[in-house]
């Protein structure tokens, strides 16, 4: 079994996909670091101070002003209202939610990439795991070996899990190392608030507690990993079902992008919350952002994702072991 997994890992590494993913992440992180750097400078220049309390207070006032303008979409109003209460809570407790530093950048990067960017990277690596064997004809060679079919597929699945873990690690390391060059490498012990729950337009703070930034990051990265595993499993299933890697990528791409669009407009379509792509932003629950549909919670989203993942896994194995290969 170990040899089979090793064999599959060898294929993944040989295709240089991990290298490509690493370079894409590095380029993007560098871009965002620069953008963030410019943003920080701009805010300092505009307000004439680097005092975060003044900056946060100004943000609160800006949000209040936006809330007072007419013609604001209902979902957006709710989102702003919840963010407003949260910012006020941070201010009242004298905690800076965005103290400069590589860990803070990492946190923002993970929060922003969990919904689309990270799943896309996973897709790039996983999409051809099985389908390339089918389209290249090597699947016959693979299946003529004296190894059970499910073992072949399992070794591929384990290789997928390993690659996903590796990509999340890459994301963490690269964003830390590159952004740290600009923002400094400190800030692991910064206290952050988590445990916000949202009831309609109100932010419930009874369960709010402080955790250190490193712990917060570990929580967010592991959620990103969870999302990646589910997306990876779904891609894996498509890869089993379809012979063409391009088709796998096309379907996944459509699903992921529709998820990003849907999240911003589904608030009135209740049953959309059972779609996997609306549930990808797990980190939003940790930071306390309003979910796309009322009533969605971390537990709910994780369960929906888990069910989708398990079904996909099940389908992959059934189809792969039963299918005729010619």
């Amino acid at each position: 079994m170990t040899n089979l997994v090793y064999n599959e890992m060898l294929k993944v590494v040989r295709k240089k996909r991990l290298l490509i993913v690493a370079s894409i992440i590095a380029v993007l992180v560098a871009l965002f670091t620069y953008a963030q750097f410019r943003h920080v400078q701009d805010v300092q220049k505009r307000l004439g101070t680097s005092d975060w309390r003044t900056q946060l207070q100004q943000q609160i006032i800006d949000t209040q002003n936006r809330l007072n303008s007419s013609g604001l979409a209902e979902e957006w109003r709710k989102f702003l209202q919840i963010r407003l209460q949260q910012q006020q809570y941070y201010l009242d407790h004298d905690i800076n939610p965005s103290a400069p530093g590589a860990p803070t950048f990492m946190r923002m990067f993970v929060e922003n990439s969990i919904e689309l960017f990270l799943p896309l990277m996973i897709m790039v690596v996983v999409a051809d795991l099985v389908s390339s064997e089918a389209s290249g004809g090597t699947i016959k060679l693979l299946l003529t070996r004296p190894v059970k079919r499910w073992k072949v597929l399992l070794s591929k699945y384990i290789a997928m899990l390993l690659s996903v873990s590796f990509i999340v690690l890459l994301l963490a390391l690269l964003s830390y190392l590159i952004s740290g060059a600009v923002f400094g490498y400190g800030g692991w012990n910064l206290p952050l608030l988590t445990g916000f729950t949202i009831n309609g337009e109100e932010l419930n703070t009874t369960n709010v507690h402080l955790i250190a930034q490193w712990k917060y990051l570990l929580v967010e990265l592991s959620l990103a990993w969870f999302v990646s595993v589910v997306v990876g499993t779904l891609t894996f299933m498509l890869s089993v079902l379809m012979r063409s890697t391009a088709a796998v990528m096309g379907v996944m791409l459509a699903a992921l992008i529709s998820g990003a669009i849907l999240s911003s407009m589904v608030s009135s379509w209740q049953s959309a919350k059972y779609l996997f792509m609306v549930n990808l932003s797990l980190t939003d629950y940790i930071s306390g952002t309003a979910p796309p549909i009322t009533g969605m919670t971390l537990g709910f989203s994780m369960s929906v994702l888990a069910v989708w993942g398990l079904v996909a896994l099940f389908v992959s194995f059934i189809v792969f072991t039963k299918r005729d290969v010619y």
Binding site: V168, L221, L223, W225
Partner: peptide
């Protein structure tokens, strides 16, 4: 890394 993320998930 996988072990680490699994631990994080538990956390």
């Amino acid at each position: 890394a996988g072990g680490c993320w699994l631990f994080g998930l538990g956390l």
